[in-house]
Design a protein around this nucleic acid. Sequence first.
DNA 1: ACCGTGGTTAGCTTTC
DNA 2: GAAAGCTAACCACGGT
Lengths: 97, 97, 97, 97
Amino acid sequence: MSDTNVASFPAGSEDETSDVGGVAGKRLKSFIDRIERLEEEKAALAEDIKEVYGEAKATGFEPKTIRQIVKLRKVDLEKRREADELLELYKAAIGME
Amino acid sequence: MSDTNVASFPAGSEDETSDVGGVAGKRLKSFIDRIERLEEEKAALAEDIKEVYGEAKATGFEPKTIRQIVKLRKVDLEKRREADELLELYKAAIGME
Amino acid sequence: MSDTNVASFPAGSEDETSDVGGVAGKRLKSFIDRIERLEEEKAALAEDIKEVYGEAKATGFEPKTIRQIVKLRKVDLEKRREADELLELYKAAIGME
Amino acid sequence: MSDTNVASFPAGSEDETSDVGGVAGKRLKSFIDRIERLEEEKAALAEDIKEVYGEAKATGFEPKTIRQIVKLRKVDLEKRREADELLELYKAAIGME
DNA sequence: ACCGTGGTTAGCTTTC
DNA sequence: GAAAGCTAACCACGGT
């Protein structure tokens, strides 16, 4: 492997953040690792979702319709949340809690 | 005058895109003019909206509350729209329409 | 307790605020109406702008490029305006005008 | 009922689809449930990621910078994967493996 | 006066 | 290849 290390700036071998950024470098690497791990999981879920749509389609359900339903239900949820927030605002306005 | 004219390409008088990009240049300029005109109007409206919030506040209404109401009503509208779209989808599915 | 339902979201029919929030409710409704009206117009303009970009693209101009130009010209405009303001300041300082 | 509750089935109790769509309705609901569940998890991960960026920022690292690094490493990863795939292709072409 | 937050916009990906 | 949905950067507002 030659040129694929573009972004691991230490330029040297792996795990070599210490000589460049010292402790800070290690913390940074830790953050990046955590983020990459989480994004991997997130991508896997996106993949799963796609598969479910695929299954549904194979069973005869239009993905488009399902998406619309999911979307509508989401808007529903959101509406409820917004209404709650408004209520809190009103309560605050009249001094309740 | 140093670098303030970075983007005013014609550099000289108006309508001087012809010698550089020819007809294409003129069309491009036309597009840009239209966009700039529209964005101006849009900015003016944003300003107006801000003023209304200001007035409301001066009258004793919390901008925050008003924003929340406006938002909630918007979600409401959206919900209705999504429901309509779903209905269309259903109708199409059963061959109506 | 007098105005807890101030906003009783018009979801239903018109003029629903009168019996609940009284005059205050009417004023609030008026503010909301004005805001919604303005936001509608603003959204319409945003739509128009999008369309212009679409046209431009269909004609062979990259939207991305046009956006950059528009942005450049905007900061340019601002620079010029600020320079003018500065000039006015100077003139005022030395008693001109 | 003037409102647009066409699709908010679950609003009430479970299993409400049976009398309408029969078995098909149940399968549809199952698909929707699975999708919503997965999307929830996905949203939770997005939240987690945001938090990590927040932590990083609190530690003095610019989120923007970290994002750039993460992006760079991602395309890097892709490059490596594609190179591997190409290698496999070559090996297959010459009869290895 | 600054920070944090929420809204807006642009660029990318995916879908049709 | 056009259109839409998703995501990330930007900006402006409100709060402290």
